[in-house]
Design a binder for these strands. Sequence first.
DNA 1: GGGTGTCTTGTGACCGGTCACATAACCGGT
DNA 2: ACCGGTTATGTGACCGGTCACAAGACACCC
Lengths: 338, 338
Amino acid sequence: MSSRPSARPTIRDVAAQAGVSRQTVSRVINGDPRVAASTRAQVERVIAEIGFRPNIIARSMSRGRAHTLACIAPNLSDYTFARIIEGAEAEARLHGYFLLSSSAPDVETFAALIDQLVLQRRVDGVMVINPYVDDRYKHLAESAPASFIGARSRDPRIGSVSLDEGEAAHIASRHLLELGHRRIAVIHGPLAEESAQARLAGCLSALREAGAEPDLVAGGDWSAASGYAAMNTLLAAGRPFTALFAHNDRMAIGALRALREAGRRTPEDVSVIGFDDIPFAAYSDPPLTTMRQNMWQIGEVAVRQLIQAVEQPECAPEHLNLHAELVVRQSTARVTSA
Amino acid sequence: MSSRPSARPTIRDVAAQAGVSRQTVSRVINGDPRVAASTRAQVERVIAEIGFRPNIIARSMSRGRAHTLACIAPNLSDYTFARIIEGAEAEARLHGYFLLSSSAPDVETFAALIDQLVLQRRVDGVMVINPYVDDRYKHLAESAPASFIGARSRDPRIGSVSLDEGEAAHIASRHLLELGHRRIAVIHGPLAEESAQARLAGCLSALREAGAEPDLVAGGDWSAASGYAAMNTLLAAGRPFTALFAHNDRMAIGALRALREAGRRTPEDVSVIGFDDIPFAAYSDPPLTTMRQNMWQIGEVAVRQLIQAVEQPECAPEHLNLHAELVVRQSTARVTSA
DNA sequence: GGGTGTCTTGTGACCGGTCACATAACCGGT
DNA sequence: ACCGGTTATGTGACCGGTCACAAGACACCC
């Protein structure tokens, strides 16, 4: 029938076979109600018969929308990021979008990605995890709808989703204080990141409120190795402490190992609380008390925001703050001696 | 100048401004050498001036290629999968492709994804992690170039990358045997998966070769919780063993916890070896001896294979087998008593 | 001067959908 | 019979690039 023998059938092939116009076929595949039931049945029969599937790229072309979103994270294998992406991907698909996730370890890569994804119109919008590390947010400009994750956006046109870090850090600190701890060590994340700053601020304010002096503070880079090193530094300082608040679980687990090696028992000698509730938190020795944040939900919400920004640009973007939840396991206990 | 005031400039706008034809602009942006140097300079000036960026979707449209690949995994947050995807994404970008990663927990989702991604031509090819769980491979048919990860493809037209699981399991088992262990328990993964089967086969053959009787075997679903449960089952069976080979690190870590709770010390009473070398393996208590597999590389190689299948369909697909490496930490030791 | 070759550039059609608009058919009301 | 309104369908242009092909300019050669 058609000129091309084995090529994929197009909307025109269907139209010819069914004896209708292209537009009618287009209406059928788009569920337009303005098609007679008999015509629709006929067209659907032909579609099934010749195995026609609409070409999404052509549709994107004429509709001027890629139906694809991007998520740019510093990397894709960190559990926190991976969960956010997983949630985002599921939610995007629910709304008929696809999600292209890319890792941008540095600003240069980030800028290149924005060019290829956004300026070259491969995606309709972009979600950025940790936009304020290394000034990457500057490369966004007015290029496309965006949504930030992990830091409240300073640009009024860009929505954001983040955890109420201050509140969460406050809750974690109060947990230790309520167990009677007063000499509390802290291992925080890189202060270039908003979330690290906010966690530290929330934590210090809680300690000060309770009259505890936060004089044992060390920093890490979120990795277990850095938590291990930070704990060794704290131990070497020689000042006594009965509890530790590590600002993520991986550093907490590294610290746990350093404590073990130094002969300090957890929680008998030192209580430890982490942050995130990664799957291994429940399997560390001892199982880790931590602040659970719902990463999946963060991804979900960010996608919804982004889709709104894409489809209803006139709507003012929102800034959402989610809440973390205390999960008490066995790494924290009431302080024993004074 | 142009009719649309603030719309994004197109190739025609550039052509008009530069006083050349569309085709010449097209040649410039594609680096075609058949353009006079002066013309090229002029066109490039206009491009920079009006901030023209080619629309990738339009290009995909006329070239009939999406310049995008997909990777479908059971989920996106498992460290193993996330690393594969991370490696694949980086390699894809190096070759001018983008990677769309999606999670398909079941066959129905998988089939729907194949329809949307492949049949509707959003991507040029698809990488499938664990294609032989629940018959998902059946939905691929001739639809598009594909490349399998984690299982050797049974379809001659499809390439694959996998670990030499048998060899790796053999090496791990021999490590325990060489330490003098004879009563070795095994916790394997779901036998619906090829890799689990192959690991178990390699492990059992090594044990038999050494005359050790593999009579303590339990199964898990790769999760730490399942490793914990499996170890409790093994302990409840009451038969003595001095070593455990858990077929991934997460189950090993779960088992470690069960052993600890049962008062068995690692490695003094029971040596434990895992598989994968996830980041936490180095921070478990004790640090876990394990088989390291290079997930990133697997993703990289799979993308290269896929791109070849897309660009040179006439080339015969390959089946690659990568090798795992033994990493000795502190969870395995020479057997103490007989 | 005419033929042949290379280099550079331009034209019209096309990829596979969708949009805006036109047209035809049918209904009831007066 | 005429009008307005609704429903069903078709037409040509268009999205923004690329392809195949044509054609002008110039040099070289006999």
